[in-house]
């Protein structure tokens, strides 16, 4: 019980930090967006882990099932996933425009061009 009691949360933290590292340490804009996606997905996993009841079943009412998992985090995350993909699309459109304007998607090259002009 003790070992697996928090294993889900630890993996969530590891994934979250992977996404965070990609966001702050990588200069490539597409890599940053992939990092943002990883971060988002780790938050989804955190909420779904909160909703799980051991011995429970999926929250679709049927005969002969006593325990159900908590349906409320599922609703929240359904909304969040769709909004997350809208964010991704907008970010990628921005990347395409930046690539047209500067000819590169590396952050430090863009900053260098900005300082030269």
């Amino acid at each position: 019980m003790e070992v697996h009691g928090h294993f889900n949360y630890w993996i969530v933290v590891v994934l979250m930090m992977i996404g965070f590292y990609a966001l702050i340490a990588r200069g490539n804009l597409i890599k940053k967006i992939v990092g943002l996606n990883i971060f988002q997905a780790s938050v989804f996993l955190l909420f779904i882990s909160f909703g799980k009841v051991s011995g429970g079943s999926a929250p679709i009412i049927a005969e002969g099932i006593q325990a159900y998992s908590n349906p409320l985090p599922h609703v929240l995350i359904l909304t969040a996933i769709v909004v997350g993909v809208a964010t991704t699309a907008l970010g990628l459109a921005l990347v395409v425009r930046i690539n047209e304007a500067y000819g590169t998607i590396e952050e430090n090259e863009i900053a260098q061009m900005d300082s030269e002009t």
């Binding site: 989804f44 779904i48 882990s49 159900y68 995350i77 359904l78 769709v82």
Partner: peptide, 11 residues
Amino acid sequence: LLDAVDVAFTE
């Protein structure tokens, strides 16, 4: 596995 079948569908 964590019983969130609708979320899995969307994801």
